[in-house]
Amino acid sequence: MKTILLLVLFFSAMLFPKTTSAAPTAQEIIALAQQQLTVPSEFVLGEMKVYRGERLNRRYSFVLGKLWDAPTQTESVRIDFQSAINSSPDSSSLYSDHRYLLKRTAQVLPTQWLYLPALRRVRITPYRPDDPLLQSDYLFYDLTTIHDFSDYRYRFVETNEQTPIIEGEPHTSFVPYQRTLFTLERRGGAYLVTKISYIAGGKEWQVYFSAFTEIAPGRFRPRQMLVTREGGRTEVTFQHWTVSDIPTPRLFTPLIWKPRC
């Protein structure tokens, strides 16, 4: 009897301890990274500079807003560009506000609206995930960051718990990349994506996120984003982040957009 009890104890010890203190899987780490990005509503004021070689090609100020509707699992992204009417990329005397709005639910193609001030009206425009966002190295696909995480199957490339590297293989048809490598960094209980390497069409480009600040408890956002690609780079500075638990759906309803006076 004593022997049987010892054997039961031995097998119990073999079966249970591993599962209770197991390291998170690649999928779980990504879920944590996705989770820390998912807030009901957030806004950021920023500036995007697009370089061709070493030459500044375009400069835009923008306001980026995000809305996460948990019940419908809908991610809304609005980006208001102040594009220069004055043609010099360094000039800031005259601007025109153009807006894009993308709404994405689950792994289906987002709907995209465009507001052109000259038209005073909103138009639905075709969504093309591989189109660059205003001549930059950033794609329209990259705007819906929360849902983008669900477009891949993940596996570890490096299992270092502090700075894991995870490879994503897309399973959603419209993902414009063939392979994606995420470099993450553990910050408390959260994981932050510090670098993404994309491979598509035999070419590779990198996105670096840096200067993270905690804008709300457990919510970290970068102040800098750099996209480097063959022949150019895009620098994005996020000047001011605000996170809100109270959603502002009016701002994400295209039909009620009014021209700015």
């Binding site: 153009h98 001030p117 000259a118 189109d131």
Partner: peptide, 15 residues
């Protein structure tokens, strides 16, 4: 108008 021109170029550059 400059706004219309800007809109047209914005559309071009988006594509």
């Amino acid at each position: 108008t400059a706004e219309e021109v800007s809109g047209a170029f914005f559309l071009l550059e988006s594509r």
